[in-house]
Every structure is written in C-alpha cells, then in structure tokens.
C-alpha cells in the first residue's frame, strides 16, 4: 500500500509534540498496518506500516527517503547501513516498529544543507566509488568508524569496514577517503555516536 499524504517525503512536517504518542508504547500492534512514528534525521514522521516492515522498506517505500539502498536484504552487504541512536546498524534486519522512540540517521542526514559532510567530500575527492550503489552505506559506516576510533591503519580500516561490500571494489579509494578525513580535524565534527 502507499502511504497517506502526510507520510511521504523528507519534507513531511514534524508532528507537534502534543500529537505524538499514537498509542501506549507497550500496546500490541498488528499484524495489520498501524500508525507508528519514526524520527529520521531529526524529523518525526507518522507512517502506517505492518510490524513485518523493515526499517529499510519503511524509509524507502513509505517515507520516500531513498538514499539508503537495498542490496542483499539479508544483512550481508551493508548497503542499507543507517544509525539508530547513533550506532551503525543494517536497516534490512531492523523492524521499523522497533525504532519508535529512537533516533534514525540516514545518509540524507550527513550533509549540512548544501555543504557536504567531510566524509562525503573525501569520497568525491578520492573517487571512492564507481556505480555508487553501496556508497550511502559506506558513508554511514565510514563516519561511524571515525567515532569508533578504528582508523589506525589500512588493515584496521579494512577490518572495521568489512560489513560494507563494494562490487566495484573501490576499497582502496574508500580507505583513502577515510584516511583523508582521519588526518583532518574536521573529520570528527559529526561522529557516529
């Protein structure tokens, strides 16, 4: 089913405080679709989903926030990486209903208006992609990685980025981009947690 009008788009108005809390948080919902609230990049959206809908599908199919990509849909590729409460997770194995009351950050939340996040800038500078499909997930992992502090050398970067597969094998340039941000103070401006 398609979302109702107020559920679509990143420009959906935030819901006034008094209108929040569509039901008690411990109420049983489903299996039919139910209104839930998702806070994405600081904006709270009301969206109608069945409990079986993944966070990934809720973002892409219901909210039209399509920067997050669907690759394997089984937790193996990392294309769908987002942050939930500041921690990088795979949104394909996360139920949307389980994210009520949590802060979701997607790749759309990295840039400051038209000003790219330093990691996005570094990916451009280092040609850290070919087809670009895995890039949103790579970025969300790479920025989180800075905050996690596992950027000592290329081996450590590779190990801690291994949850993000790149079929174009842009790995050397992705590591270069991460090193670039690591080596500039600006890199920690907007960390993962």
């Amino acid at each position: 089913m398609r979302p109702r009008a107020h559920q679509t788009g990143t420009v959906a108005p935030s819901i006034p405080e008094q209108a929040r809390g569509v039901r008690p948080r411990d109420a049983e919902i489903g299996p039919e679709a139910t209104d839930i609230e998702l806070t994405v990049n600081g904006t709270t959206h009301r969206v109608r989903v069945e409990p079986r809908v993944s966070l990934l599908d809720a973002l892409r199919e219901r909210l039209d926030i399509t920067g997050t990509k669907k690759g394997c849909n089984q937790g193996a590729c990392g294309a769908c990486t987002v942050w939930v409460d500041g921690r990088r997770v795979v949104s394909c194995l996360t139920l949307a209903v389980a994210c009520e009351g949590r802060e979701i950050t997607t790749v759309e939340g990295l840039a400051d208006g038209d000003r790219l996040h330093p990691m996005q800038r570094a990916f451009v500078d280092n040609d850290a992609f070919q087809c670009g499909y895995c890039t949103p997930g790579q970025l969300m992992s790479a920025v989180a990685l800075m905050a996690e502090g596992h950027t000592c050398d290329d081996a450590e970067i590779a190990e801690w980025m291994s949850g993000n597969i790149c079929r174009c094998a842009a790995y050397p340039n992705i590591r270069s981009a991460i090193r670039q941000v690591r080596d500039t103070a600006e890199g920690t401006r907007k960390g993962g947690r």
């Binding site: 411990d26 049983e28 489903g30 299996p31 409990p51 079986r52 209903v97």
Partner: peptide
C-alpha cells in the same frame, strides 16, 4: 515475509 503482531515490553 508472513504477517505477525508486535509488542514491546520493558521488564
């Protein structure tokens, strides 16, 4: 995926 209901608990 088959349908299922959902309940969040805190204790």
């Amino acid at each position: 995926m088959r349908s299922f209901a959902y309940k969040r608990v805190s204790d």
